[in-house]
């Protein structure tokens, strides 16, 4: 497995898109900080800091794109077969791709966190301190970290679904469209879903509600809307995520080893 992970990481790092995206991410965060300086009425610096200068939104796009195209590009290059006729099982080949994607997401999140702290020091040193108390009665640095963890957990759940879709279709388009749509649908239609859950309690077990796990971890009051306790939503999150990934493994094996 270690060899497979090394190989997948090597391929990812050699893809021109990875370095281009990483640079873009840094520039994007920098641009947000400069934008705030030029147009101070648009954003509050504390909000920018709490949201990692909106890096997680951009990272979601990239991870969904990479996750969706992981298999379709191997098919396109004709390399998938060669990956499978080595000493490794098909499950190991696929899991190594998923773990590499996870590693990639962790790297990008870490990079965005470092950049957030740097931008705070460079641009907003005199605006607020890291120990500033925010509405959740936490120091701002802690709230920012919790927010990042929440975003990361949402991304992981979404990615698990996208990875399942990627195994179902030779074309990456459905996975990209569904993944990105789901991200926005959840943001926009969460309120609508909460109203429906209020009317039909069983709807609280729908997988889209589990996307709120990260947010509920950050803000326990959300349980009144999701109708799930923190343990329940965690179990649902893990169960659905596992189902998506196990289904992905089964589909991948059936499609490629006939």
């Amino acid at each position: 497995m270690f060899t497979l992970l090394k190989q997948e990481t090597y391929k990812l790092l050699k893809r021109p898109s990875f370095i281009v995206f990483w640079l873009f991410l840094i520039v994007f965060q920098l641009a947000m900080a400069i934008f705030e300086k030029v147009y101070p009425q648009t954003f509050q610096p504390e909000n920018l800091f709490l949201n990692d200068f909106y890096a997680p939104v951009v990272i979601v796009f990239y991870i969904i794109a990479v996750g969706s195209t992981q298999l379709s590009s191997e098919n396109q290059y004709g390399t998938l077969k060669a990956l499978l006729y080595r000493q490794y099982s098909s499950s190991k080949v696929l899991v190594s791709k998923w773990l590499t994607l996870l590693g990639c997401a962790l790297c990008l999140y870490s990079s965005s966190l470092v950049m957030t702290l740097l931008l705070k020091v460079i641009f907003f040193q005199n605006k607020f301190g890291l120990n500033l108390q925010v509405s959740t009665h936490q120091p701002i640095w802690q709230a920012m970290l919790m927010n990042t963890v929440s975003e990361f957990l949402t991304l992981l759940f979404l990615a698990a679904f996208v990875l399942l879709l990627a195994t179902l279709f030779d074309n990456s388009t459905p996975a990209i469209i569904v993944g990105i749509s789901a991200y926005f649908v959840v943001s926009v239609f969460n309120q609508l879903m909460f109203m429906l859950i209020d009317q039909h309690d069983w709807l609280k077990w729908n997988p889209v509600n589990m996307l709120n796990f990260g947010a509920q971890l950050n803000s326990p009051k959300l349980s009144s809307l999701t109708h799930l306790g923190i343990n329940q939503i965690m179990i649902g999150y893990i169960a659905y995520g596992s189902i998506f990934l196990i289904l992905g493994l089964v589909v991948f094996r059936r499609r490629n080893l006939r």
Binding site: K14, P16, E74, Y77, G78, L80, K81
Partner: peptide
């Protein structure tokens, strides 16, 4: 097998 699968990049 069949044709060589290569990463273009």
């Amino acid at each position: 097998i069949e044709y060589p699968g290569l990463y273009p990049y």
